[in-house]
Computed example of a mutant assay.
Amino acid sequence: MKTNYQPPCTITPEIVNRVAEISEAIGRLSVITDQAKALRLRRVNRIRTIRGSLAIEGNTLSEAQITAILEGKRVIAPPREVREVKNALAAYDRFDTWKPEAEKDLLEAHRILMSGLIDEAGLYRHGGVGVMEGQQVIHMAPAAKRVPRLMGDLFSWLAVTDTHPLIASSIFHYEFEFIHPFADGNGRVGRLWQSLILSRWNPLFAHIPVESMVFEHQVEYYEALQESTRKADSSPFISFMLRMILDTVTTSTPEVTPEATPEVRLLSVLAGEMTRQQLKESLGLKDDEHFRKAYLLPALESGLIEMTIPDKPRSSKQKYRLTDKGRKRMTQHGKG
């Protein structure tokens, strides 16, 4: 399908500068990542990618549980969440065979990701769909009958654009989420496809867990999508995604990546005794529920931190401090 469609987008100086920074950082990463370390990182980062992307959609499985599923071990967890992980692992196994500009490949990716989860796996939706925030509809997607044409236009643009892949992948991601072509699974497919576009520019992006960073900033992710829709211009979303990509690339060194779990990041900012609010602000996080589930609870459950008032968990004077185990963990990572 031929089209003259051009997604509305303003390329700001900030976007141009970020592209330059990412290009420089990915160049450095290419030099220091030797083959042996790359194989180790590939597995770790694939697990982080899957956990991040699914966690945005509400999946609660940890990296350890996903690793166990990957190794064929039995995991006690909600069957739907286990199925989501198995589907994601199967999809990423096919990752290298897909072409970003091939619409049939995207449909196949959706079919694999959503197999056994929805009836319309691998098919564009046949009904209306909206994006909800609580009880409020924050985005009403285009009518179902328009989806094939809109997606055709988007793929035709992607096939011929000379826009830098860092920008083009972000534009595609935004436009895809705006169209919301599937009944469910749009978020995970959109993020997967941006990674696919980037990996064709530089193969390292097949193993850099951008989705994990997006998960940590998921409130901002949705805010950037909404702002771009309000402005009818994808530049706010592009700026956000480039910041996520830059942050991920600059922390994805062979020495840092395997240890860069949320719990360890929490330990790295914990000085003395700190409140929940102080910890959340030190980590640069906005979403209290995300902070609690992804950072605080795993660190407590792992015995890396402890409450100063354990008998009154909900006390307004509650603070948190490192345990001996937490201090040893930080010493092992050269932080203590």
Rank of each mutant, 00 (worst) to 15 (best):
T49F: 07
I50E: 02
N45Q: 09
L70F: 05
T60K: 14
T49C: 03
S53H: 00
G72I: 01
P78N: 15
R46F: 01
A55G: 07
G72Y: 05
R83A: 14
K73E: 15
E84W: 07
T60G: 14
R80Y: 11
V82N: 05
A64M: 07
E81A: 13
V82K: 10
T49Q: 08
I47W: 04
I50S: 01
P78H: 15
A88D: 00
A64L: 08
L61S: 11
N59W: 09
A77H: 11
I47E: 06
S62T: 15
E84N: 08
R51E: 15
E71T: 00
K86C: 05
E57C: 03
E84F: 06
V82G: 05
E84M: 08
I69V: 09
P79W: 08
A55F: 10
R80T: 14
E71P: 00
E63V: 06
G58V: 14
G58L: 10
T49K: 00
A88C: 01
I50H: 01
A64I: 02
V75R: 09
A88K: 00
I47V: 13
Q65E: 15
E63W: 03
G58F: 11
A64W: 06
S53I: 04
A68F: 04
V82F: 09
V75Y: 11
V82P: 07
E57V: 06
L61M: 15
I50Y: 01
L70I: 00
T49E: 14
R80D: 15
V85T: 10
P78A: 15
A77I: 06
E81Q: 15
A77W: 11
L54A: 07
E81S: 13
E63Q: 12
E57P: 00
K86H: 07
G52P: 03
E57A: 03
I50G: 01
R74A: 15
Q65Y: 09
V82T: 14
N87H: 03
N87Y: 03
N45G: 12
V85Y: 03
R51A: 08
G58H: 10
V75A: 10
K73C: 02
R80H: 14
I56P: 01
T60Y: 13
G58S: 12
E63F: 01
L54G: 01
Q65S: 13
R80L: 14
A55H: 13
A55Q: 12
N59M: 10
V85F: 04
S62K: 07
K73A: 13
Q65T: 04
S62R: 08
E81M: 09
V82A: 09
T60L: 15
A88Q: 01
K86V: 04
G58Y: 13
N87I: 04
G58Q: 13
R51H: 12
R51C: 03
I69K: 02
G72C: 05
R83Q: 15
K86S: 07
P78M: 12
E71V: 00
L54M: 03
I66D: 06
A88E: 01
G52L: 02
A64N: 11
R74W: 08
R80P: 04
G58D: 13
R80W: 10
T67H: 06
N45K: 01
T67K: 11
S53N: 09
V75T: 06
K73T: 01
L61F: 12
I50L: 04
I66G: 02
T49A: 05
G52D: 07
T67Q: 14
G52F: 03
S53D: 06
